[in-house]
Computed example of a mutant assay.
Amino acid sequence: MELFLLCALLLYFYIGLKVRKELGGLKAEVVLLPSAIAGTQSHNTSYDICLSDYVTFPADNIDSWIVMVASATCPACHEELEQFLIENVKYNIPFFCLIKNDNITETDSFIENYKESVHIIPISEEVVDQMQIDYFPTFLHVIGDGTINKQSLLVKTLVKEFK
């Protein structure tokens, strides 16, 4: 009888852990759901901001860019960046990444992991706040003078501008 109770208790804890893990994954999906629904809708007013007031662009003679604003602690940022880098091989869209410098260790690791594939510019939390970026990742279509033409939570909506 004691063995049965011990097995039942272990099974109870095992099932509880599995359910908690599944709910944690569900929570992440629910958090990302607004980005899938939002498409090209803007969630802030960064259209009124000239990006070149905050960062120096990697090159001067480019007509337009896609700029990713990311946080090194954001798992979706890593996934979106990796996916875009794969897809961008066929489009060759000028691209760079602004990384929120909120955790020095994570930011350094992010830069080290992607420095061969993309130009990365660390920016402070203050600059992110001034740009009124609320969600990560956020993708910007920026024209040559630094004006933000379009903003999206999904890079695919901006890629269409370059096709």
Rank of each mutant, 00 (worst) to 15 (best):
L3Q: 11
L3W: 02
L3V: 10
F4H: 04
L5A: 14
L6D: 14
L6H: 12
A8F: 10
A8S: 06
A8I: 04
A8K: 00
L9E: 02
L10W: 08
L10I: 02
L10P: 03
L10K: 01
L11W: 07
L11M: 06
L11T: 06
Y12L: 15
Y12S: 14
Y12M: 15
Y12V: 12
F13R: 11
F13T: 04
Y14R: 13
I15F: 03
G16M: 07
G16T: 06
G16L: 08
L17P: 00
L17H: 11
K18N: 01
V19S: 05
V19G: 00
V19L: 11
R20I: 13
R20M: 14
R20W: 15
K21L: 12
L23C: 02
G24L: 08
G24Y: 05
G25I: 00
G25P: 09
K27M: 04
K27S: 09
A28I: 13
E29P: 07
V30W: 08
V30F: 09
V31I: 14
V31D: 12
V31C: 10
L32E: 15
L32Y: 14
L33Q: 06
P34Q: 10
P34N: 00
S35H: 15
S35W: 13
S35F: 15
A36K: 07
A36Y: 05
A36F: 05
A36C: 01
I37E: 08
A38Y: 13
A38M: 14
T40C: 13
S42C: 04
H43I: 13
H43Y: 15
N44V: 10
N44Q: 07
T45F: 09
S46T: 11
S46F: 13
Y47P: 12
Y47A: 09
D48M: 13
D48P: 03
D48I: 00
I49T: 03
I49R: 02
I49M: 07
C50H: 12
C50S: 09
C50G: 02
L51I: 01
S52A: 15
D53E: 04
D53A: 03
Y54R: 04
Y54G: 01
Y54S: 04
V55E: 02
V55D: 07
T56M: 13
T56Y: 13
T56C: 15
F57V: 02
F57R: 00
P58A: 10
N61P: 09
I62S: 10
D63E: 05
D63L: 06
D63A: 08
S64F: 05
W65L: 06
W65P: 01
W65V: 07
I66A: 03
I66V: 04
I66H: 02
I66F: 03
V67P: 09
V67K: 08
M68E: 07
M68T: 05
A70R: 02
A70K: 02
A70M: 10
S71K: 03
S71G: 10
A72H: 05
A72Q: 00
T73N: 11
T73D: 02
C74K: 00
C74G: 02
C74M: 06
P75G: 01
A76H: 12
A76F: 14
C77P: 08
H78F: 09
H78M: 07
H78K: 10
E79F: 00
E79D: 10
E79K: 06
E79A: 00
